[in-house]
Amino acid sequence: MTDPAPLWAVLALPAVLAGAAWAVASFDAVLGAGARAAWPGREALRLLVQQPRRTRAADVPLTRLGSTLLPVAAVLAAVVLPLGFRSVSDLPEGIVWFNAMEALAWAAVWLTGWGPNSTLSLIGGYRFLAQGLAYELPHMLAITTAALGAESLRVGDVVDAQAGLWFAVWMPAAFGIYLLSALAMSFWGPFDQPAGRDVAGGAAAELSGVDRIVFLSGRWLLFVVAAAFSVPLFLGGGHGPLLPGWAWTLLKTAVVLAFLVWARRRIPTVRMERYVELAWVVLTPLAVAQALVVAVVVLNR
């Protein structure tokens, strides 16, 4: 265990996350090569000056609650995210906390889809619930497997347990499942159906102005946080030769993010009515088997 982070880290965290989200969104736009080149900064400014917009008989507080919840959940989940070996607050049940915050996205997307009283946004919200049912269980099993490897729910302990061998090496299935669910929970990439273009933006279809900025940047934040969390869980956190811990964390996070952004371009959007079956029939038993292997290793340690 390391000493707690100073209080100014609380101020730095949202700024760092926002910067990372902006960088990833820009990287994605660059790869997009023109077609949908909406540069994040410019896009945010464009939305910022928009007139507020209300659909008929919309539930405005509900919509706003939903869109606000998304970045809040992302940033609060990042509390347990260590930069090097220090996180803003290394909660004793950090992994459960992360899981709880990430599950808030279910409510966030559903409320945002429900609020505007619009068919397409309702379909978007509904799709995310089906997506949640598909990704969440293998995801939880994957993160418990990492916790099992360290026999602790504290993220700091999980990182310490990987001083020698990274968890990704001896629990590859859990790592792969985690990456899939990181995409799914931030409904980004091949799992972007809840906000898909075929439903005119889905849950975000009727959002304009600040609500849209908050919701979409919340999605990027959640994506960055979820991807970054794979580093302490499976990729050894700040462990690595030569470079200081924080540099290793940043480097590994950047590699994971770049990989996910690149991989997105190779595959179409996955529809839940097909993925649910895969998730329950293949991924869940696979995650359980992985957990069993890890449990046996832990017993014989």
Binding site: Q51, P52, R53, R54, T55, R56, P116, N117, S118, T119, L120, S121, A200, A205, E206
Partner: peptide
């Protein structure tokens, strides 16, 4: 605020 119908 702009008051409008839902988009489909």
């Amino acid at each position: 605020p702009l008051r409008t119908g839902p988009f489909s």
